[in-house]
């Protein structure tokens, strides 16, 4: 059972760690001071979430968080390709923030009643932070998605470019059935449906 659990925790941790790292590159480079500050806070939250998850992995027998995060090679990382892509312009970074955080909030909502208690506890603890990430993403998407000609076309271009990568977030794992039957995690399929439902309502 622990391989299934480790694989699940690794992919969530690596997603948060790599995207938090990418988003931290904007600190000091943001479009306006107040957004520079908010975007950096969310990047710090993500790095914090990944640290909590790597600490869980250490309790399952993996190495310590610094070693795991700072000394593995690319082929040992389990993050989806979406989060490793370069930041591009602010429209792509915002659209990725919107699509990724919508899924992440759903993922952790599903983990609220995970049978693996540390995951359920973490999901409960960071619920407020994930709420902020989605409020922030929604506010900017709504505003820029109906702002000027330029902001609408930029977001549309980034949305079209991002969707295939965003679908990549839900790649089924070899342990899907085991995770579902053990009540650890409801499965990528269910997560994708909820996310798509939200997209497709």
């Amino acid at each position: 059972m622990s391989d299934a659990l480790k694989e699940l925790i690794y992919k969530i941790a690596d997603d948060q760690f790599i995207l938090g790292h990418r988003n931290s590159e904007w600190t000091g480079f943001g479009p306006m001071l107040e957004e520079d500050i908010a975007f950096s806070s969310m990047a710090q939250d993500k790095i914090g979430h990944s640290f909590a998850l790597y600490t869980m992995l250490r309790e399952l027998g993996e190495q310590d968080p610094d070693t795991v995060a700072f000394t593995r090679n690319a082929n040992q990382f389990h993050n989806c390709i979406f989060v490793e892509l370069p930041n591009g312009e602010y429209d792509f970074s915002l659209v990725r923030h919107f699509l990724f955080d919508t899924a992440e909030a759903l993922r952790f909502e599903m983990l609220l009643n995970s049978s693996y208690e540390p995951l359920a506890l973490l999901a409960k603890k960071i619920r407020g932070e994930l709420r902020y990430h989605t409020i922030h993403a929604n506010t900017f998407l709504k505003k820029l998605g109906s702002g000027t000609e330029e902001s609408i076309s930029r977001l549309q271009k980034s949305l079209d470019y991002s969707l295939p990568y965003a679908m990549g977030m839900f790649e089924p794992s070899p342990y899907e059935s085991e995770l579902i039957s053990e009540g650890i995690f409801g499965g990528e399929e269910k997560l994708r449906e909820q996310w798509t439902k939200k997209l497709r309502k």
Binding site: S24, T27, I47, F51
Partner: peptide, 29 residues
């Protein structure tokens, strides 16, 4: 300081430097 934000060694330094450089932007605001 932002020159080293992507290379801070280890979680403790990485999060501290992210928060510190953010504070500089915050203090400018």
């Amino acid at each position: 300081e932002g020159t080293w934000i992507t290379r801070a060694p280890g979680f403790k330094r990485k999060m501290a430097l992210m928060a510190k450089v953010q504070d500089e932007v915050g203090h400018a605001q």
